[in-house]
Simulated assay, not measured.
Amino acid sequence: MSSIQQLQGTLSQLSGQLAAAEQSGSMEEVGAIAGQLGQLQTALQSAQSGLTSEASESARQELVNCRMLLHGMMNAVEAIQARAAEQYRQVLGENKAAFEQLADAAKQSGYPEAYQYRQIFQQMAEVSQQLRQLDGSMLDMGYQMERGAQTGGSLNGAVPIEETTMDTHDGWTI
Rank of each mutant, 00 (worst) to 15 (best):
M1C: 09
M1W: 10
S2L: 01
S2T: 12
S2W: 00
S3T: 14
Q6K: 14
L7T: 15
L7D: 14
G9P: 09
L14W: 09
L14V: 06
S15V: 14
A20V: 12
A21W: 02
G25Y: 10
G25F: 06
E29Q: 11
A32T: 07
I33C: 07
Q36F: 01
L37R: 00
Q41P: 12
L44R: 01
L44W: 02
Q45F: 07
Q48S: 12
Q48R: 02
S53H: 13
E57W: 01
E62P: 05
L63G: 08
N65V: 03
C66Y: 12
L69G: 06
L70A: 07
L70I: 14
M74D: 04
V77N: 05
V77Q: 03
E78C: 06
I80G: 11
I80M: 15
Q81W: 07
Q81L: 11
A82W: 05
A84C: 12
Q90H: 03
N95V: 09
N95W: 03
N95Y: 08
N95Q: 15
A98G: 02
Q101N: 04
Y111Q: 04
E113H: 02
F121V: 05
Q123D: 00
A125Y: 00
A125S: 01
L131M: 03
L134E: 08
D135Q: 10
L139N: 14
Y143V: 09
S154V: 06
L155D: 10
N156I: 11
G157E: 15
A158C: 07
V159P: 03
I161R: 09
E163C: 06
E163M: 14
T165G: 00
M166A: 10
D167C: 12
H169L: 13
D170M: 15
